[in-house]
């Protein structure tokens, strides 16, 4: 029973990632693409967690942590590029 629920939720996550991929490719504006990529990262983390429940293993927990860190840094870099046009500043103006 619980296995069936986990499999159904995994399929739903995959459908969500496919829809978000459409938003990332077509997306009318750049903030849409940034939000789409961040949400793809969150969905990937959730599906890795479900896979590790299904396989009854703890081996993927580091992958979840690293994916969370990289999604965080990627979102910050994207939003900074959209907002200011430069990612690493030489000297901040304040």
């Amino acid at each position: 029973m619980i296995e069936k629920i986990l499999l159904i939720s995994l399929v739903l996550f995959m459908i969500a990632i496919a829809l978000l991929l459409y938003r990332v490719i077509v997306g009318p504006s750049m903030p849409d693409r940034a939000i789409g990529l961040d949400t793809i990262g969150v969905n990937l983390i959730s599906s890795i967690a479900i896979v590790s429940i299904l396989l009854k293993t703890k081996a993927f927990l580091e992958a979840i942590l690293i994916l969370g860190i990289l999604a965080f840094i990627g979102t910050i870099a994207f939003s900074k590029y959209i907002e200011r046009g430069v990612i690493v500043e030489r000297k901040s103006n304040r």
């Binding site: 081996a59 580091e62 690293i66 860190i69 990289l70 840094i73 910050i76 870099a77 900074k80 990612i87 690493v88 500043e89 030489r90 000297k91 901040s92």
Partner: peptide
């Protein structure tokens, strides 16, 4: 799972996060 390569990647991404938030001189 782990080791020098992956540990180095994570440590380097922390440094990159600092460079993103602050600027190069700071």
């Amino acid at each position: 799972p782990g080791g020098g390569f992956i540990g180095g990647l994570v440590l380097g991404s922390a440094v990159v996060l600092l460079y993103l938030t602050y600027d190069i001189e700071t």
